[in-house]
Amino acid sequence: MSGRTISQERAAANAGAWLARLQRDDLTAADAEAFDAWLAETPDNAEAYREALAVWHEFEAVAPEVGAELAELGRRQALRQGVSRRRWIVGGGLAAAAALTVAVLPQISGQPDVQVYATGKGEHRRIALSDGSTIDLNAESQLSVAYSRKGRDVVLADGEAIFDVAHDPKRPFVVEASGRMVRVLGTQFDVRNRDRALSVTVARGKVQVSPVAASSAQAFVLTPGQRLRIDPEGVGRLASVDPAEAFGWRTGRLVYRDEPLADVVADLNRQFVRQIEISDPELARMPITGVIVIDDQDAVVARLGLMLPVRSVPSERGTLLLRK
């Protein structure tokens, strides 16, 4: 692994997405403005984009030569395959044994295989892991997975994910987020690590949440239907919830009970490139209770208007919410 930060990794993933999007045949000014907004988010974004651009331009400059070289590589490979196919007929047993050794090697080398996954705005991703576990990654999230013979270690650096963990008593599944470890054997649960606040909701099985560093902070054991929230000051609170609500984002439904509009808008802004802004702080504090279906952004904004006395006007970054 290189020594890049999570933010840089995410910027690199998004830089690729933007460079691809800007190649669209039907590129519009809206794409351009959304690109501008993304660049402005963090200096890492411009840097990652420049890096991708440098490689992109390099290919542009020598496209015919690279094409010719690829054709040459293809010819040579075809030639080699012809040779090895003949050898296979002669010494098939030997070749099969060699192939098996190669396949087993990563397992016995003891080096965990680390994979990094990142999602951008509005992007959801399902990750199928080698042990049968799955991870659903919400928008603007970043996690890494390290599997070894001794354990399954996941770091949720930022964002939210639902874990569906295959039972394996010999290899505990541990999720690290916001200075806590969530340890499980086989279960389904949601971990949310946003703005330095951690939230863990369990649907099935049992999980333990404890501090990563040795400290006097409390450890919690959660059972199905329980949610633990730890605020940025480290204060934890347990509550009974319907797990289906916390898991709703996977199917495009966000469920809120007395959440301030600012938090709801922060969630929505992770799902859409066009950003929603709130005109005044008092409006930002107004509580929302209800279900927001994430489909078309205009429809979502219209639904907000049904839940609160707000109206929307177009703004430079997207949409501005005003008090009615």
């Binding site: 190649q23 669209r24 045949d25 992109w56 390099e58 290919f59 542009e60 020598v62 496209a63 015919p64 030569e65 690279v66 094409g67 070289e69 690829l70 040459e72 590589l73 293809g74 490979q77």
Partner: peptide, 29 residues
């Protein structure tokens, strides 16, 4: 040029094909 070509050759097949057609041959998306 050889390094660039090798990097493209090692992309997964469909990804590599899309890149070759779009970027190297200059086809639109």
């Amino acid at each position: 040029v050889r390094l660039l070509a090798e990097a493209v050759a090692e992309l997964p097949p469909q990804m590599g094909r899309a890149f070759r057609l779009h970027k190297l041959k200059g086809l639109t998306q």
